[in-house]
Design a protein around this nucleic acid. Structure first.
Lengths: 362, 362
DNA sequence: AATTATTTGTGCGTATGTATC
DNA sequence: AGATACATACGCACAAATAAT
């Protein structure tokens, strides 16, 4: 029930399109001339030109003075979908993200997608700017490493806008509790649990932990830590848990104003015999402080980190670390969002079980 | 010297555009009618309609039957330029590139540009694919870390295509000799020179060097190395120079099939008392071999690396390293290509002088 | 509620210009 | 040089939507 067009030029346009499709004309093939169109359809030259002009604007045809009119893109009407995927990272420089991006890039490249990169430095405002930017870009999908995922997000409105536009969004590492979304994450609770069990097995009596307070990973690793302790009838004193956040971490790594945290680390190094550290960066930092204060790792105190980064291998005392395969995580993420884009899967909720890699620090 | 258009409808179009701009009309404001245009410009209705039709297609105007013609997007004429910059890296994961990208990203983000990322793994074919891909993307500019810059490039044709399209291309780290282009590079010759002078000052009598054969940096660092030696009336035996390439490096880092290079490193460690290493990764690798074979650094042999990467600080024996500020390099690069895009500078040839950072390995 | 003037949309006829083959 | 094909340009007539009277 194709509606009969009221206007002659609509009939002419349709005639051209039918002509292209029936004869299976490809880009560059010539169509009949304006004069011939006049005769075939018994319309004026003006009407033919109006029709052809429309089809040129719509991308169907191209005309060349003195030569004729040619098929441009017979599939122009398909409105080909975007092949661009936005990736929002927290820290590009961060010790594990480059590897994940390398995995992402490799898969996306192979499948003909491009990456558009944004970086938040774990700041909510920068995340907002990236999202706003991406909303103006006709993306096929978005991969996000959530900023400060432990807290309610100020950017849910923008995430909902992506949903409204049916642009798939896939979280990596963590996600916002209040926004039901697709994600590929590590099983951080299990990671904390297994790391702590390992410390207990190695004889830890006085446990301590250092966790990041503003992302979900920190909370979940802490949860696993508590679970392992309680299953083994151990308790933990509040004083032996150090919570730090993005701001503290920046100061620590820049060695500015880190006195408070340093003091607390010295405290627990003196009091405890096992520390579950939020990640390898922290474990490495603890190692340095231990060296300065003469505490021996692992003899006096054992350390477990997370992420199995290069730091873990390069440290004086090679670090035991809980980790996922990073490049692989990037690949899985890329493949997942491509499935979402192709609608072969609408929701992806993937939790990757990490493994404990035992080294000298325990 | 705006070219006077040959056709009447061009004049009419320009008249409409001037009218909108002079009266500062906003979206939705009405412009004069077709009849009035006929009278004002003394042209036929047909010509006026052709002009208005063009402007509608270009996004300037919208007309409503029975009401009139209205301004749609008063800025459409700008044909707003792309705000997307392609960045081609060799190794995203590489120990210094993430920091450079972070610097790039920060500046680009601030100036409203987006990064599209490509990765070559230092393979010419992948570089070609990235360039081809970028040619189909309407980019404002391209930043490239050249692949195997010591060799003639197979991709000059594509680089010339960018030039033809007047898309600025800026090389970083190195560039192709046969393609006269803009670049931001480190002064690698000076770096090799100053690193070698430092080794000589520390008493090096039997020099050795390890260089990468397939990028320009390796050749230039070698050149600086030779210069420093000859200025101090020292000579170098061919056997004490190790050349490696991308393929060897991959094997070395994966600890597969690296026997040949390992043997040569053991050789020079036994024979020589100072090694200028292509970069910190190599210096770190040499350090590990030295540890295994019982050679003491710096007592028996001194090492100088390049890049001042995290590796330099984390090694057992902290590495002396020749380096530029990496984040800063990213910033300079970003600012340079933005200047090129804005045409405030057409060619950028910037050579950044590296500094020697002295640590335990010398 | 109907009329009228205005404005854009469709359509035809004609003439001339200009690029390509 | 001539034929063909698209490009520009003018004039005219009528249709359809809108706004004001």
């Amino acid at each position: 029930m194709t509606k009969q067009p009221d206007h002659k030029y609509e009939i002419v346009k349709q005639y051209f399109i039918n002509f292209i499709q029936k004869n299976d004309l490809k880009k560059g093939d010539k169509v009949f001339s304006e004069n011939e169109a006049m005769e075939r359809l018994k319309v004026s030259r003006h009407t033919v030109r109006k029709a052809i002009g429309d089809l040129i604007n719509e991308g169907w045809l191209i005309s060349v003075k003195g030569m004729g009119t040619f098929v441009n893109d017979p599939g122009a009407f398909i409105n080909k979908p975007s092949k661009l995927i936005g990736v929002i990272t927290t820290y590009i420089t961060d010790y594990i993200f480059p590897e994940i991006i390398a995995g992402l890039e490799d898969v996306f490249h192979r499948k003909g997608y491009n990456i558009m990169l944004g970086n938040t430095s774990n700041e909510i405002e920068k995340e907002r700017q990236c999202l706003l930017n991406f909303l103006g870009q006709d993306l096929a999908g978005v991969v996000i490493d959530a900023t400060k995922s432990a807290y309610p997000s100020a950017n849910i409105d923008l995430l909902n806008e992506f949903r409204k536009r049916k642009i798939p969004v896939l979280f990596i590492h963590s996600y916002y509790r209040e926004f039901d979304s697709s994600y590929v994450v590590e099983n951080d609770e299990y990671g904390g649990y297994t790391g702590t069990l390992h410390l207990i097995k190695r004889g830890m009596k006085k446990p301590a932990g250092i966790f990041k307070s503003d992302d979900m990973q920190g909370h979940l690793r802490y949860k696993g830590f508590l679970k392992a302790l309680s299953e083994n009838s151990m308790s933990i004193e509040d004083d032996n848990i150090i919570w730090f956040n993005t701001y503290d971490k920046k100061n620590m790594l820049n060695k500015t104003n880190s006195g408070f945290i340093d003091g607390r680390i010295i405290d627990i190094l003196g009091r405890c015999d096992g520390i579950l550290c939020y990640n390898d960066e922290i474990a490495y930092y603890v190692l340095e402080i231990a060296k300065k204060t003469g505490i021996k790792i692992p003899e006096n105190c054992r350390l477990v980190g997370f992420d199995d980064s290069k730091l873990a291998i390069m440290a004086d005392v090679k670090l035991t670390s809980v980790s996922h395969p990073k490049n692989e995580l990037g690949r899985i993420t890329a493949e997942s969002i491509i499935k979402m884009i192709n609608k072969s899967e609408t929701f992806v909720k993937m939790v990757i079980k990490p493994e404990l890699i035992v080294r000298e620090s325990t």
